[in-house]
């Protein structure tokens, strides 16, 4: 697996300057990359480009040697709002993608159970979506994204609509899951703490020029602890970076 973002620019209609300008980034197999930046830096736009939900104005995004043009199951997205279907149960939501691709029922339910176990929702598989909490909905969305077993998993601020406690718990669990499954993940967040906690590399985008202003490798052992001296220092350094780029 290789994901290459090459000289990518994105300018929206009726805008004076590029939202994203000359982005170059390469993500390796099994890598966890977080993108941070002050609001308006285009981090969600970058994710939408990789997802194929939008097209770059110039430049290429190449996954395994192929140019990305449309959305596809090799780049599943987990959104900030869960995007689960209220007419389906937890189980049917999780198996949704597999159903589209024609996986037989028993096989897809087996796989779904595996991931529902992983996010601690096995007991809730038959619940309707409106009867589970916000945190559980996000776990369901995570299980759904994991079952796709896509080449790269795209996460667009998946925990930022949750309360702090729930969001901290979910990121702990995401870390455990990542350690177990070693998925390739591109993760967008506005929280530097979240980024330092999760990532192998943190990419800082600048809202001033729309480009990458810094890439910081995080070489700390996992599980990480937010009160470790090294963690605090790194967080502080990156936060300075982000603030320095804010408009």
């Amino acid at each position: 697996m290789s994901l290459k973002i090459r000289n990518v620019c994105k300018r929206f209609e009726n805008e004076q300057k590029n939202t994203l300008h000359d982005i170059n980034l390469e993500i390796k197999k099994g890598e966890f990359v977080c993108i941070v930046g002050a609001s308006g830096c285009g981090k969600s736009t970058l994710l939408n480009l990789v997802a194929g939900l939008e097209k770059p104005t110039s430049g290429d995004i190449i996954l395994n040697g192929k140019n990305i043009e449309n959305p596809g199951p090799d780049r599943t997205v987990m959104f900030q709002e869960h995007g689960l279907y209220p007419w389906l149960s937890v189980m049917d939501n999780v198996t949704f993608g597999m159903k589209l691709s024609g996986v037989p029922k028993t096989e897809r339910e087996e796989k779904a159970m595996h991931y529902l176990d992983m996010v601690h929702l096995a007991d809730y598989k038959d619940y309707p979506i409106h009867q589970i909490s916000g945190g559980m909905r996000q776990r369901t969305a995570l299980a759904r994204a994991l079952t796709m077993e896509s080449e790269v998993l795209l996460m667009d601020e998946p925990f930022s609509a949750l309360d702090k406690q729930t969001s901290n718990r979910l990121r702990e669990e995401l870390q455990k899951i990542w350690l177990k499954t070693k998925r390739t993940i591109l993760f967008i967040t506005h929280s530097v703490e979240e980024a330092v906690y999760l990532a192998d590399r943190v990419v800082v985008l600048s809202p001033q020029h729309g480009g990458v202003s810094n890439i910081i490798p995080i070489n700390m052992e996992r599980p990480r602890h937010v009160y470790d001296k090294e963690f605090v220092e790194l967080r502080h350094r990156i936060l300075e970076d982000v603030r320095g780029e804010a408009i």
Partner: peptide
């Protein structure tokens, strides 16, 4: 729109989008 976006990143084609997402959502 998020229903359609989610489905398209899970590989839904146009027809599947109507049958599995748009019609149930609009029911």
């Amino acid at each position: 729109p998020i229903y359609k976006k989610a489905a398209s990143t899970m590989g839904a084609g146009k027809k599947q989008l109507y049958w599995h997402v748009i019609f149930p959502a609009a029911l």
